[in-house]
Amino acid sequence: MSGHPSTTEPVAGPPPLVSRSLLLVVVAISVMLVLLALLAWRVLRAQPVALAVGEPAPSFHLQLIEGGSLTLADLQGQGVILNFWASWCDPCRDEAPLLEEAWLRNRDSDIAVLGVAHLDQKAAALRFIQTFRITYPNGRDSGSLIARAYGIQGVPETFFIDPAGNLAGVWRGPLTPDALQRFLPLIQPAS
């Protein structure tokens, strides 16, 4: 009966430096951490960033409500008043006549006014344009891409872009005649 104990004892080989299960757990956790880090980086990158005055204004491609399209590059050499608005926004109604007036008064001196309808429907935006007899170009921001690029916090918001394509000023809220007078000289093309 002396053979029994030797058969029941586990055969002990050299102990592994790191157990296989521990290795698998470490690998799984590492993969998860890498994926989480990538996701966090992407989410943070997608957050709207506040543009700084003097920085190049983000380029955009705007589908115009009246048809056709316009890019920021098309307006190179002109001062641009880029206005974000919506038909459901009450303060946008207050500033609409002022923007139209600014457009009519300055379009011959290479100042372009451009409206971007934010989170709006085409029919509602068109009604707004007709109600306020707006004649400057307006487009819809499909997918809120332009709004995200400019980091808008709401509507109305107006960005002033100089002829070199750099951001000269930002006005959050309904535009006032004083604000317009303050920013217009900054985007006036050199004559």
């Binding site: 296989r20 299960s21 698998l24 757990v25 799984a28 956790i29 993969v31 998860m32 994926l35 989480l36 990538l38 996701l39 992407r42």
Partner: peptide, 23 residues
């Protein structure tokens, strides 16, 4: 890229399952 939001928890669940199973 946003599929990672689904993938990460799935990998976590599978990884934890494998870990628990091995243990």
């Amino acid at each position: 890229f946003q599929s990672l939001a689904w993938l990460v928890p799935a990998v976590a669940v599978v990884g934890l399952g494998i870990g628990a199973g091995l243990r």
